[in-house]
């Protein structure tokens, strides 16, 4: 059996899809299980010009960043065409390509009170292995 991979978009114009990846499971409150469409999950915020993001879901805040995928991913859709003799002919249709994801790999921080946007300057000088070499120079 052969399954052909089709693509209508052609190179260069393949639509890009997006991914938000986070640890664990997003669990809607029990009352909302049947009414997920349009339900707000969280607020994705880009505080500065860096590719750093926060994702606020309920009372939790996640901190993460936009990362390029090591290898691109294509989004494939299984399509069944009615076929004369033997029922169905299956094809895979390329519907998109993914090159980046916004990844939240840390555990969420509980929001007790609204945290102020901290300045990031304090974090910059902390670099691994930098201080010993400074000393010796």
């Amino acid at each position: 059996m052969e399954i052909r991979v089709r693509c209508n978009c052609g190179e260069g114009s393949c639509e890009e899809w997006g991914i938000v990846e986070l640890q664990g499971v997003v669990e809607p409150q029990p009352g909302f299980h049947d009414s997920l469409p349009n339900l707000h999950i969280g607020t994705l915020c880009r505080p500065s010009s860096q590719e750093l993001y926060t994702f606020t879901v309920g009372y939790h805040e996640l901190t993460g960043s936009k990362v390029p995928l090591k290898k691109p991913m294509v989004v494939l859709k299984k399509v069944k065409h009615p076929d004369g003799e033997s029922g169905c002919k299956v094809e895979l249709q390329v519907v998109g390509v993914i090159r980046h994801k916004i990844l939240f790999k840390n555990r969420p921080k509980a929001l007790i009170s609204k945290p102020q946007i901290t300045s990031r300057e304090r974090q910059k000088p902390i670099m691994l292995g930098s201080s010993p070499s400074n000393q010796s120079a």
Binding site: E15, W17, N38, L39, I41, L44, C45, R46, S48, S49
Partner: peptide, 17 residues
């Protein structure tokens, strides 16, 4: 996905079902 790709610095978007 476009909205996700181009979030302007200092702004936020809603992620929803």
């Amino acid at each position: 996905a476009e909205a996700l790709k181009h979030i302007a610095p200092g702004s936020s978007i809603s992620v929803a079902y």
